[in-house]
Amino acid sequence: MTLLEIKDLTQLFSGLCAVSELNLSLGESELIGLIGPNGAGKTTVFNLASGFYQPTHGEIIFQGRNLAGLKPHQVSALGIARTFQNIRLWKEMSVLDNILVAQHFQLGYGLGGLFFRTPRYLKRERDIRHKALELLEIFKIDKFADEKPGNLPYGMQRKVEIVRALSSGPKLLLLDEPAAGLQSTDVTELITLIQWVYDQFNLSIWMIEHQMKVVMSLCSRIAVIDFGRLIASGTPSEIQNSPEVIKAYLGDDQL
């Protein structure tokens, strides 16, 4: 079953072609990687998939539904969650509140309920809170629930961001360079974490990553883009030996 299908995706930024006629599909319960040199357009692809940009051309189909014209919050309500290259947690809110707000699309109460504190409102708030705490507990960060994310070590912030993304119960998780800025011991931990999330949460993961160790040990399939174009796609070992990829990363004269 395909979960996400990208067809002829093109994104122009005032003449600059950031993504060009990209075709790609992602099955259910797949863990794939997206790699490419700096500035190849990887994050742009994620921004398109999360609805932050509207594609100039082409379409993105998620679970049979075209994402064209949807706002990011609608896309995330459909089940696509993501993390960011530079962590974008809400720094002045507690970790718990960060997780709570990410469930915004499924609050299930109206303003009337909120102001009059109806039983339904109270129950929903309790449920959401319960769910968030449970999630924090699963990831063993419940002791930081009341902490501000800014006070946590960098690796922990990454983890909180992943938990925040998971809290909306996504079918597809986009990880934008989860290992960026981590020490090598933390990277090993991160690999275990992602693998564990993948096994436990019944979802697909698509990640951008520069550290080959992460991509090679996790992904069953890797797509490589350069200058917005898909230049190779296949299993990790195929990619490692692809002359196209080596050319893109190291340049022509190295061959």
Binding site: F52, K71, H73, M93, A102, H104
Partner: peptide, 11 residues
């Protein structure tokens, strides 16, 4: 605190 993140996290 971060409007972009809020919109993408379903707000």
């Amino acid at each position: 605190q971060d409007e972009v993140a809020a919109e993408i996290m379903s707000v």
